[in-house]
């Protein structure tokens, strides 16, 4: 696939084409008001840092009704749950940052795993076309390169867009993306070298990335049993804000809500920081204190997910958890401690 270019004066037409037959969502608003919203094609904004929340709620809403039943025994199917459908709709999402798209690609391998496919997730992702916008000027809170990503990363995207002066460069990455770009009337252009140059520039702005490779090669139990977890978890309030904002955190709870006429089975975002998350019916809890729960979160991101997903880390370096944590726990410091554990074991 070659690259394409959309000239500045053709941008509105390009976004019109994206919006044709689909809802077009783009980042709107400033600072912590910045979120993905339905956007008229002439109101797309290319000057934003990133959305306050990760885009995971597009495919995995914070609360979602899965199925419902009625309790009227005089009618058929009483007390039998019926699916409420996956509620997917044709979407074009423009302006997802590469870290967040990578987050969706990691969650995608969980929701569509080696044994089961979550139809509610699949129904949405199959109808969405994701156009990322590369970060030519990464925010100071970002560290995607340290986590194995790039401000021009391609994972999880159908098209990578990037600013080429006042024009917009496009690199289709999937057949779905190629189709979208061709239909938009964008002109082909050879921009491979331009991308390389812009990417190198953007990576440089993040400084020399720390090397966490030691974690990948370290023994799982050595990392797990290291005494640093007690100190690492000491300040944690178990508030769960890290899991709320994380683009790869995908845990959920399932709860039944009832009314006089029947009920609905809901799923809601959940958090491994909660005591209730793992407690058994007997009262036994495999992760009884915050130390085990904090260890679980970082081991999951930095060791368990890489073991299951060909070395890809479960942290994409978006920086949200670092920015939001009320007690300044920083996943980079934790990764460094884990790297030191690994080195002392080697």
């Amino acid at each position: 696939m070659s690259e394409y270019i959309v000239k500045e004066n053709a941008l509105v037409d390009f976004f019109k084409s994206l919006a044709s037959g689909r809802r077009l969502l783009t980042p709107q608003g400033l600072g912590d008001k910045c979120k993905l919203e339905e956007t008229p094609p002439d109101k797309v904004n290319l000057d934003f840092s990133n959305t306050h929340m990760s885009p995971k709620s597009l495919l995995f809403p914070q609360t979602e009704a899965l199925m419902a039943f009625h309790n009227d025994a005089s009618k058929p199917q009483a007390f039998v749950y019926q699916s409420l459908g996956d509620k997917g709709e044709p979407l074009a999402v423009f302006g997802i940052r590469p870290c967040d798209a990578k987050g969706l690609s990691i969650a995608n391998k969980v929701f569509q795993n080696d044994r089961f496919t979550d139809n509610y997730w699949k129904g949405k992702i199959d109808q969405a076309v994701l156009v990322g916008l590369a970060c030519d000027n990464p925010s100071p809170q970002c560290f995607c390169a340290a986590m194995g990503g790039s401000p021009f990363g391609e994972a999880g995207l159908d098209v990578l867009a990037f600013r080429q002066g006042k024009d917009l460069g496009l690199k289709p990455l999937t057949p779905k993306g190629e189709e979208l770009v061709k239909a938009s009337g964008a002109q082909t252009a050879n921009l491979a070298d331009a991308i390389k140059g812009l990417e190198a520039e953007a990576v440089k702005s993040q400084g020399v990335p720390p090397d966490y490779k030691g974690i990948d090669n370290a023994d799982l139990m050595a990392l797990f049993n290291d005494p640093h977890w007690l100190a690492t978890a000491e300040n944690c309030l178990n508030c769960g804000v890290c899991t709320f904002f994380c683009p790869t955190c995908h845990c959920f709870d399932i709860q039944d809500e009832t009314s006089e006429k029947g009920g609905v089975r809901m799923r809601n975002w959940d958090t491994c920081m909660s005591w209730l998350f793992t407690v058994h019916g007997t009262g036994h809890n495999p992760r009884p204190s915050k130390t085990e729960r904090v260890r679980q979160r970082f081991m999951h991101k930095l060791k368990y997910i890489p073991l299951k997903q060909d070395g890809v880390r479960g942290c994409t370096g978006c920086g949200r958890c670092v920015a939001m944590c009320p007690v300044n726990i920083d996943i980079r410091s934790v990764a460094l401690k884990m790297t030191q554990t690994a080195a002392s074991q080697a």
């Binding site: 795993n113 979550d118 799982l220 399932i254």
Partner: peptide, 16 residues
């Protein structure tokens, strides 16, 4: 403790 039973909801893991 389990919810989904499908390896998605995240609570029953023992390591990876």
């Amino acid at each position: 403790r389990m919810k989904c039973g499908l390896g998605i909801c995240g609570r029953c893991n023992v390591g990876p």
